[in-house]
Nucleic acid binder design. Structure first.
Lengths: 323, 323
DNA sequence: CTGAAAGCGCTTACAG
DNA sequence: CTGAAAGCGCTTACAG
């Protein structure tokens, strides 16, 4: 680990002042004599100079980095969200720091506070709890920029960008009913997160006699298997299972199949998030496609230019062999 | 987003110098009059003061943060590695920045260089390619601290911590042969990464007539499914499949089962990494348990205290129903 | 035990 | 167009 060249070294080698060297290298001011610029560039190259990001950030009062905090990076849906956000940030010249909250509001609060010690200008967060996440988020708003993605918390004073859950549930339900499925079972998570609450409300407002619900403690493949066992223990199977997360659908599907249930003949299964998972299983699973890039781009926009607006983007139904 | 209080504000409110306020708050010097300390703490509390990490880092010439670069966060094995590293770092008071290289040496090089612009004191990297990753790693060594985890690259001048692949393959093979499995097929990835090369060498040195190999372009569930199709297209099934990644084992298992193969009766299947995946499938899959915490802790140690040592830690065999 | 001063490495008004 | 100077917010020898 060699000693890193500083701006001073470059200026010395090029025979100019640090001001001029900085103007050339940081590109903040185009008005520099071409010959001097050439010398600065040559010296910088020769010394392998890289501006010290810490010093630059202190002076500029901005690191150019943003944090993203998701409930779990074991859920491919959030991985996809992180990817989209990172890509949006990168193409705008920003870096991204990732953290996860383990689906726990207390850990989440600790991570949000922790980002205060980190080198970020702001934070995008997927709140774990509608009721409990607001406090830490509001605290963070006091010292940084914050935006909520995919879920929102009551009491948070910052913006939000997510999918339109009501429209999403409606699209899946319409599709299932249009293909003749009558008894539809809603498989979701407890209403702790806003997304779960919105999806459940959307379902209930459209439920018909014979429909039902299974609510699980969390979104995971294991929870999907658990749901399958509950279905199998009932007298008869429903016509379709509307899962509100892809991991639930995948867990459900594999357990049903292992127990001899034929999908989609005996029962249709739908996912929600549109992750790659759904195309890897057999049969591929019908689900929504969330406009991830648009969500990520808009979230970044709210971070750069804060407002308290809530944005809901429409998902698109992708019908596959499972329904 | 309110204006953040600075050390100057705290000192002013407490009626002391910035030096004294800093000594109390940063805890760098215990010799402060208790009464003054009390006043500083009270003022800090009242103003909601948090030291500006950027300024602190510039002065200390250290951010206290470390980066970790893995081939993919879609592979639960690397997620587990990241978790262990993050936990080790956190408990030592360090933060962690995560990036992924998409299993591509060029992207990897870009990310390694990118960490030079990031706010980290060093970088732990899982090199994607034994032959090609060394250049970027060596470049990074010139300006920061670097350690290799799980895999190593030729030409890198830094330390390495990983599992003992030779011992691991030997343990699985011994177990399979001891339980009467004769024709064993090795299912691995191309030898681009050092782990793959070491495992394949370990297998070959112990292979017996009737054993075989299937080499895939990468470690993924999809690759595991592909391996199953290749096995099924052969005249007869082997007695056991020794998969060198859990994702391979899971993909293989599900496809075999779908095609009516009974595991472990007709064929044993073993994984390698010991991720949670293996206990979620039916039957649960035999694999090694890698000493993740020890690997992570030692890697962090090499980052804090650089040496060029290569450390190989012994994995432990965990026998489950799949073999 | 305490405070004034220097300095980490940059960027950017400001004066020339 | 260029350079001397100030300053971002800290920490830490140093002198007292």
């Amino acid at each position: 680990m060699a000693v890193r060249a500083t701006l001073h070294d470059v200026a010395l080698a090029a025979g100019v002042s640090r001001s001029t060297a900085s103007r050339v290298l940081a590109g903040t001011d185009r008005n520099v004599d071409p010959e001097l610029a050439r010398r600065v560039l040559a010296a910088s190259e020769h010394l392998g100079y890289r501006a010290n990001p810490v010093a630059r950030a202190l002076r500029r009062q901005s690191t150019g980095n943003y944090g993203i905090l998701v409930p779990s990076i074991r859920n491919p849906y959030f991985v996809q969200l992180v990817d989209a956000f990172t890509e949006a940030a990168r193409s705008a010249g920003h870096g991204v720091m990732l953290a996860e909250s383990a689906d726990d509001p207390d850990i989440e609060a600790a991570r949000i506070d922790g980002f205060g010690e980190a080198f970020v200008d702001g934070l995008a967060v997927v709140p774990t709890s509608m009721a409990r996440s607001g406090v830490a988020i509001r605290r963070a708003e006091g010292r940084s920029r914050v935006v909520q993605i995919d879920r929102w918390a009551t009491g948070a004073g910052c913006g939000f960008v997510g999918v339109d859950n009501d429209a999403g549930v409606a699209a899946v339900l319409d599709h299932l009913r249009a293909s003749g499925r009558r008894r539809i079972i809603y498989i979701g998570a407890e209403q702790e997160a806003s997304a779960g609450a919105e999806r459940l409300a959307a379902f209930r407002s459209r439920a018909e006699p014979g429909d039902g619900e299974i609510l699980l403690p969390r979104f995971s493949t294991t929870a999907g298997r658990e749901a399958a066992h509950r279905l199998l223990s009932q007298d008869s199977l429903p016509d379709a299972a509307l899962c509100t997360a892809d991991v639930l659908a995948v867990g459900l599907l594999s357990t049903l199949q292992r127990e001899g249930v034929r999908v989609p003949e005996q029962m249709a299964v739908t996912g929600f998030d549109g992750t790659d998972l759904l195309e890897l299983v057999d049969p591929p699973v019908t689900a929504l496609r969330h406009p991830m890039e648009a969500i990520a781009t808009r979230a970044l926009g709210l971070l750069l230019n804060p407002t308290e607006e809530h944005h809901r983007l429409a998902p698109e139904l992708v019908v596959r062999a499972s329904s």
